[in-house]
């Protein structure tokens, strides 16, 4: 897409230079410019692009299957997560989300107060946390590791600092130590 965009920009620039250098009265008619370029060029390019994007988008959607389900709850200016703990039971954690690497998971995103947005740039895609609504977003960490996440919707003075971390662990290895992040008093 970036390359295509660059090529089209370049093409327009070349056309402009040629148009400036062309002698008066040397151009083509309306049929060539309007029907040929205006419609004949733009419509096919757009059709292909939209089709391709819908095809990719389809794969990114959460659907009813047995994907792992985790919750992300935003409150000014912190994130709380619910995910399976070491014993398989759901546990509530602060600022860090633990998910197994290599499989898709659905994040159920909600908000306590204002609109926030859940975004882990390296995992792709973002989804808003809207009070009164629960949004579902499907993600997948291909490799184990630590991924930085942040709030992407402006939410007040704490917005620049509303960060979180996603730790993708190797499902074959023992679970990482979550104890430091677990919120004790709140059992889901």
């Amino acid at each position: 897409m970036l390359i295509g965009g660059g090529l089209i920009t370049l093409m327009i620039c070349v056309m402009l230079v040629l148009a400036i250098r062309a002698r008066a009265g040397s151009g083509r008619g309306e049929r060539f410019w309007i029907w040929g370029w205006g419609l004949g060029f733009s419509l096919p390019v757009l059709t292909i692009l939209v089709g391709f994007s819908l095809w990719i988008g389809e794969r990114m959607l959460a659907r009813a299957d047995d994907a792992l389900r985790v919750e992300a709850h935003a409150a000014r200016w912190d994130w709380e997560f619910v995910q399976p703990g070491p014993d398989g039971q759901p546990v509530r954690t602060e600022t860090t989300l633990f998910v197994p690497a290599g499989s898709s998971f659905d994040v159920f995103i909600s908000s306590e107060d204002v609109i926030h947005s859940f975004w882990v740039p390296q995992l792709g895609g973002k989804m808003d946390a809207v009070p009164g609504h629960v949004n579902v977003h499907r993600l997948r960490a291909d490799a184990p590791g630590t991924y930085e996440g942040l709030c992407a919707e402006f939410c007040g003075v704490g917005h620049p600092f509303m960060r979180f971390t996603v730790i993708a662990y190797d499902p074959a290895a023992p679970m990482p130590d979550m104890s430091e992040y677990i919120i004790e008093d709140a059992q889901p």
Binding site: E30, S42, G57
Partner: peptide, 26 residues
């Protein structure tokens, strides 16, 4: 998404009409 792509078409028509005008003239 499709509607947002479609709105490019009238814009493209204008861009090429302007380039064609410049090509035709001096």
């Amino acid at each position: 998404s499709a509607a947002s792509a479609l709105v490019v078409v009238p814009t493209a028509v204008q861009i090429f009409a302007w380039i064609g005008t410049m090509w035709m003239g001096q």
